[in-house]
Amino acid sequence: MLWYKVWLETRSRFLTSLATLTIFSAVFVHHAEGLQRPEWTAAYNRLLYITQQYIVVMWILAVILLGMGGIVREKATGASSLTLSLPVSRALLLGVHVGVGALEAIILAVVPWTGIFLVSSHAGMPILISQVEFYVLLLVAGGLVYFAMAILVSCLVEGEYTAPAVAFGLVFLTTIVFDAWLRPLNLWRLVTGDFCLDRHTYLLSGRFPWLGALACCSVAGVMLLVSVRVMKRREF
């Protein structure tokens, strides 16, 4: 039943994020209807690329909010005593939070692109399914780092507003710092598809960056392990 608790705790954030992303996708399709020109393909693909940028921004905001909460947040509201008096380990509590949150994050990545794909096909402007898969995979694989970071921050910082503020600040700061000095390692550019983009066709081309995705999953994994350790040692 822990999953049920996490779902009840996060569902308003999840459903709000899902609604926002869905509305955004609809706006995209509506906007794309104005691109019915002979040279529309490149412009259309460019629009897809720009759409991914916006989806990434909204998705990161959403997964950071989904990563918030948990026992440390409950400490601030006083509910942690009830959770921690249950006969379950802290690792399991965190694990279920991560599991439900990750599933919600994946749904938030898949739904808008599926919506764009379906509505575009219906409107006679089909998108290559391989492009959709590419964008979604980049978002999920790379984006899990943001989710894991949100979990870690939520294990370290108590405040209701402080924790998301710190997480958003970290995303902003790391994006700027990496873009200035470590551009090849800039997660933002990986997730948005910037590294894989053909600037002439605006299609994602070449092989999927499995190495980058693997590195992201590893970093996310390390962050989650650190979160478990922090949670085990924390006092309530």
Partner: peptide, 19 residues
């Protein structure tokens, strides 16, 4: 954790989940 299966606890501030 095993002990908590056999113990019922009501904390001072009566913590519950508001949602």
């Amino acid at each position: 954790r095993e002990m908590r299966r056999k113990v019922a606890y009501v904390a001072e501030n009566k913590p519950l989940y508001g949602y």
